[in-house]
Design a protein around this nucleic acid. Structure first.
Length: 571
RNA sequence: CGGGGUGUAGCGCAGUUUGGUAGCGCAUCUGGUUUGGGACCAGAGGGUCGCGGGUUCAAAUCCUGCCACCCCGACCA
């Protein structure tokens, strides 16, 4: 490809709506463009990268004996009613109607569709196990699309589904996919961790997430160096020593005047004790039912809303913190003085187990400017949850007891053991050996192809632009002709370009009639791994080879060039 | 969904307070000079000022409704 003809509209300035480095560079490098919030176009260079990621994933899926199909993005409401997820997915689902007012959605995922498909065709255990996959566009009407390709409303996903006769078969299929994922992510070049995932509302289901490690990532993961434990912060058990005992000065549950002492740090100053000794009471409500929940946690910790939503068996997005004006009618107090005693009876009180280790603690009195001290909570009087807290660095590993570390990342893949959740709901069965009808035991497996492109940029960039790993680079080699008006430079550039092309090297020629600065700046921005600069020494048949990653420059005679390029690309 | 902010040329922005012919930089086009890290000179094209309604002799500017985009949304209880 000649750059004089390449559709690569690079931008000097950062578009003001690009909120993360990957979005900034992909936009500036002319690889993607935004149509509307959360919806992007892929331009030639960006599309080439995505196709490379896709090809690697496809190869590893095929190697693992998965079979590729292509389903429709449009799905009828009926199959979602069968699984019960039409209502459950709620506003996240893009819905539409045909001319006869029949409801459809643009598929956010395809469990129902695959289950429906297979149910019609698969009747015998002899046809199992089976693994089908597709690479396809998915739609989710995110509450708040952001981070460019990382949380978009339209995205490309590879999704796979396995069907087995029993749990044992599922485990084998699951491990098979796990290995395929590791091979794919290794080949792409990701730095990543495999962590235990959110196992869904019902518990007992196994899942893992593949997290690309990126400093700005929105997923938090907790992991242990001493053993192989790793999990997202939504499941990692926050184990720590919560025991604290204050001397009982005065009466039990004694009311203390605490004017304007609202926050934990205010309390810390006022009472001069550790925040561990405070019992923090937060008020939330379930929006769909308007049920109000008071949650008690140790004062030095944060509530993890995902863990709470699982405990309450409600949707995470359905849980919100109460607004200031909603608090008074329920508590008789304002924010800052809420406590577990004397709440309206309609309020459901849930306690994180650790608050019972606080002896003679301090909590809100449900009266403005008053707290209670010398509080000892009695577990039998409250609903007790094992763990509602966000894990923190230094908490103890639930496996081996060593301190945990926290890292950030972007989820690029996940694997789920679904069991018979969908096959049961949709009554998808086969006949087993013994002639009995059984539900398929299923798994589902996703890789966010377009998100991978963004995660790669998050991992591989510097202050000048992107640094693509060779395996996914849009082109391998960029030949820059410094001054295309000089015949010897242009001719030599063309010769090198043609010869590399001949050998099957993916090469692009920068023959644009712009100043060298523009070419070099664009080259750094778009991040092609190797650059050959044809400049002043073209007459002597000497060119310069630069590695984008290391910025290492080598002057070399043209007849030794092929050898060097081959060596560098295979390194 | 709640709170805040912004919408003016392809991109980044000024102009809005105090109504009076729509501007700047970059990009684009023409001609010329230039070419090892975002060149220079001369000229040119490009905008229903997000959309609708209103006030006014006159609206980017004031009023009003809508739309889009961005930011924030426990750390406090």
């Amino acid at each position: 490809m000649k750059m004089s003809n390449l559709y690569m509209p690079t931008l000097r300035e950062v578009p003001n709506d690009a909120d993360i480095v990957s979005a900034q560079y992909l936009l500036r490098a002319g690889m993607i463009r935004k149509l509307v919030s959360g919806v992007y176009s892929f331009l030639p260079l960006g599309f080439r990268v995505m196709k490379k990621v896709e090809a690697i994933v496809r190869e590893e899926m095929d190697r693992a004996d998965a079979q590729e199909v292509l389903m429709s993005a449009i799905q009828p409401r009926e199959i979602w009613e069968e699984s019960g997820r039409w209502a459950n997915f709620g506003p996240e689902m893009f819905t539409l109607q045909d001319r006869n007012q029949r409801d459809f959605c643009l598929g956010p995922t395809h469990e129902e569709y695959f289950t429906f498909l297979v149910n019609n065709e698969l009747n015998s255990y002899k046809q199992l196990p089976l693994c089908l996959y597709q690479v396809q566009t998915k739609y989710r009407d995110e509450r708040r699309p952001r981070f460019g390709l990382i949380r978009s409303r339209e995205f490309i996903m590879k999704d796979a589904y396995t069907f087995d006769v029993d749990e044992e078969g599922l485990r084998a299929s699951y491990n098979n996919m796990w290995q395929a994922y590791e091979k794919a992510f290794d080949r792409i070049g990701f730095k990543y961790k495999v962590v235990q995932g959110d196992s869904g509302n019902m518990g007992g289901l196994v899942s893992h997430e593949f997290i690309a490690i990126t400093p700005e990532g929105e997923s938090n993961i907790a992991y242990c160096d001493a053993c192989d434990f790793a999990a997202t912060d939504e499941v990692a058990g926050a184990r720590f020593d919560a025991k604290i005992e204050l001397a009982c000065e005065g009466e039990p549950n004694e009311k203390v005047h605490t004017p304007n002492v609202k926050t934990i740090s205010d309390l810390e100053t006022f009472f001069n004790v550790s925040p561990k000794a405070f019992i923090k009471t937060l008020l939330l409500k379930v929006e769909s039912t308007q049920d109000v929940i008071a949650v008690m946690i140790p004062g030095n910790r944060e509530l993890n809303i995902v863990k709470l939503s699982k405990f309450l068996e409600v949707n995470e997005d359905d849980l919100v913190m109460l607004q200031e004006e909603e608090v008074y009618p329920l508590t008789g107090s304002i924010i800052g003085f809420v406590g577990p005693f004397g709440l309206k009876e309609s309020v459901r009180i849930v306690a994180d187990e650790r608050v019972f280790s606080i002896v003679n603690g301090i909590c809100g009195a449900n009266e403005k400017n008053y707290h209670l001290k010398n509080v000892v909570l009695e577990p039998s009087q409250f609903e007790v949850a094992e763990d509602l807290l966000s894990v923190e660095a230094g908490d103890l590993c639930p496996h081996c007891g060593q301190p945990l570390k926290i890292d950030h990342g972007t989820e690029v893949g996940n694997i789920f053991q679904l069991g018979d959740k969908y096959s049961k709901a949709m009554n998808a069965t086969f006949l087993d050996k013994d002639g009995k009808s059984k539900h398929f035991v299923m798994g589902s497996y996703g890789i966010g192809i377009s998100r991978c492109v963004a995660a790669l940029v998050e991992q591989f960039h510097d202050d000048k632009g992107i640094i693509w790993p060779v395996a996914v680079a849009p082109y391998h080699v960029l030949v820059t002709v410094v001054n295309p008006k000089k015949e010897d430079q242009l001719n030599l550039g063309m010769t090198i370009y043609e010869s590399l092309k001949e050998q099957g090297v993916e090469v692009v020629l920068d023959d644009r009639k712009v100043s060298p600065g523009v070419k070099f700046t664009d080259a750094d921005l778009i991040g092609i791994p190797l650059r050959i600069v044809v400049g002043k020494k073209a007459g002597e048949n000497i060119v310069e080879v630069t590695e984008r990653a290391s910025d290492e420059k080598i002057e070399i005679a043209v007849d030794k060039l092929n050898e060097l390029i081959t060596e560098k690309l295979n390194a």
